Amino acid sequence: DEDSERELEKLRKNNASKEEIKEVLKRLGFSEDEAKKLAEKAG
């Protein structure tokens, strides 16, 4: 959803580590696997 998109955008701009991105995604309700895949894509 839009909030998670914004959250990811912010992380990308701040050069967050894949680990940080994954944690945020998991907080947003993604499964471990989904979060890992998305973090890879974002990283």
Rank of each mutant, 00 (worst) to 15 (best):
E5W: 15
N15G: 15
A42W: 15
D3Y: 11
V24I: 11
V24G: 08
R6H: 10
L38H: 06
E9M: 00
L28Q: 02
E9A: 06
A39E: 04
R6Q: 08
E19V: 03
L11W: 00
K36C: 11
N15D: 08
A42P: 08
E40A: 04
R27Q: 12
K13E: 12
F30R: 02
E32N: 01
K22P: 00
E5T: 09
E5S: 11
S31V: 03
V24W: 06
D33S: 07
E40C: 09
K37T: 10
K26I: 15
A39M: 13
I21T: 02
G43D: 10
L38D: 04
K22W: 09
K36H: 12
L11G: 05
D33I: 05
V24D: 07
N15S: 07
D33E: 13
R6N: 11
D33W: 01
E40Y: 00
K26G: 09
A39Q: 04
K18W: 15
K22I: 15
I21Y: 07
L11P: 05
S4M: 15
E40H: 02
K26F: 00
A35K: 02
D1N: 12
K36E: 15
S31L: 06
K41A: 13
K41I: 12
K13R: 08
L8K: 05
D3A: 11
E19F: 00
E32H: 01
D1V: 13
E40K: 01
K10W: 04
R12P: 05
A16T: 03
A16D: 03
E32R: 00
L25M: 05
E32W: 00
L8M: 07
K18Y: 15
K10I: 10
R6S: 12
R6P: 07
S4D: 09
V24K: 09
I21G: 01
E32A: 01
E2A: 11
K13L: 05
K13F: 04
K37L: 12
A35C: 06
A16G: 06
I21M: 08
E19R: 03
A16Y: 06
G29H: 00
L28V: 01
E7M: 14
K36Q: 14
E5R: 12
L25D: 06
K18E: 13
R6G: 08
K41H: 12
K36L: 14
E23T: 01
K36G: 13
S4V: 15
N15L: 09
E40V: 03
V24F: 14
E19H: 06
L25S: 04
N15K: 07
I21L: 07
R27S: 12
E34P: 01
E2K: 10
E2Y: 12
K22A: 06
E9H: 02
R12E: 09
K41R: 11
L28K: 01
K18A: 13
L38G: 04
G43F: 15
L11H: 07
A35R: 01
G43K: 09
E2T: 12
S31P: 08
E20S: 05
A39K: 02
K22D: 11
N14T: 09
A39G: 03
K36M: 14
A39H: 02
I21Q: 01
K26M: 13
E34F: 06
A16I: 06
K18N: 10
K18D: 10
D1M: 13
D33P: 05
E5P: 05
L8E: 05
E9G: 07
L11R: 06
F30H: 03
R6E: 09
E2H: 12
E23F: 00
L38T: 06
K41N: 11
E2F: 13
E40D: 11
E7G: 03
K13T: 10
E7Y: 11
G43Y: 15
K41L: 13
L38E: 07
V24Q: 10
A35M: 05
A39N: 04
K13N: 11
V24T: 09
D33N: 07
E7P: 02
E7K: 05
L11I: 07
S31W: 02
K37E: 12
E19P: 02
E34S: 03
E40I: 01
N14D: 08
K10R: 14
E20G: 04
K10S: 09
E19L: 05
L11S: 07
L38P: 03
R12V: 14
S4G: 09
E34N: 03
L28W: 01
V24P: 02
D3M: 12
G29L: 00
K22V: 15
K41S: 12
R12W: 04
K36V: 13
S31N: 07
R6M: 10
D3S: 11
E32M: 00
L28F: 02
A35D: 02
S17G: 06
E23K: 03
A42Q: 11
E40M: 01
K41C: 13
E20A: 09
E32L: 00
R12I: 15
K22Y: 15
E2W: 14
A39T: 08
D3W: 14
A39S: 09
S17A: 06
S31E: 07
A16R: 06
E19N: 06
K22S: 03
F30P: 00
E2G: 11
S17R: 05
K22L: 15
E9S: 04
R6D: 10
L11F: 00
S31K: 03
D3R: 12
I21A: 05
V24A: 15
S17M: 07
E23P: 02
G43Q: 11
D1H: 14
E40W: 00
E5Q: 12
K41V: 12
E7W: 15
A16C: 13
A35W: 07
E9V: 03
S31T: 11
E19Q: 07
D3F: 12
R12G: 09
K37M: 11
K10N: 13
E34D: 10
E23C: 10
K36R: 11
E40N: 04
K18Q: 13
K26P: 07
L38Y: 04
S17T: 10
E32V: 00
D33G: 05
L8V: 03
E20D: 09
E9Y: 00
A42H: 15
N15P: 03
N15Q: 10
A39L: 13
R27Y: 01
E2D: 11
L25P: 01
A42T: 12
K36P: 04
E32P: 04
K37G: 08
E7V: 15
K10L: 08
D1Y: 14
R12C: 15
E34G: 03
F30C: 06
K26H: 08
E32T: 01
L28P: 02
A35L: 06
E34Q: 08
L38K: 05
D33V: 07
D33K: 02
K36D: 15
A35N: 02
E34V: 09
R27A: 12
S17H: 04
D1I: 12
S31R: 02
E40P: 03
K41D: 13
E5M: 13
L8R: 04
S4I: 15
L8N: 04
E7N: 05
R12D: 07
S17P: 05
L8H: 02
K13H: 09
V24C: 14
A16H: 04
G43R: 09
F30T: 03
G29Y: 00
S17W: 05
S4R: 13
D1P: 11
E5A: 10
L8G: 03
K37A: 12
E40R: 01
E23R: 02
R12N: 08
S17F: 05
E2P: 13
L28N: 02
I21H: 01
E23I: 02
E34R: 01
L38V: 08
A35Q: 05
K36Y: 04
L38A: 07
K18P: 14
E5G: 08
S31A: 07
S4P: 13
N15W: 00
E19C: 08
S17K: 05
K37S: 11
D1L: 14
K26N: 09
E9P: 06
E2Q: 12
R27F: 01
S17L: 07
N14S: 13
G29V: 00
K41E: 14
E40Q: 04
A42S: 10
I21K: 01
E20T: 08
R12L: 15
L11Y: 01
L8A: 02
L28I: 03
S17V: 03
A35V: 08
E5Y: 14
S4N: 09
K22E: 15
G29T: 00
K26D: 09
D3T: 10
A35S: 05
G29D: 02
L28D: 04
E2N: 12
R6C: 15
E19M: 03
A39V: 11
A16W: 05
K13I: 07
R6I: 10
K37Q: 10
D3G: 08
L38S: 03
D1F: 14
S31H: 03
R12T: 11
L11M: 07
E9R: 07
E2C: 14
L8Q: 02
L38W: 06
E9I: 07
E7S: 05
K18M: 15
K37R: 12
A35I: 13
V24M: 14
E34I: 07
R27V: 04
K22G: 00
E23Y: 00
N14R: 14
E9D: 09
K41Y: 08
L8F: 06
G43N: 11
F30Q: 02
S4T: 15
K10F: 08
F30M: 08
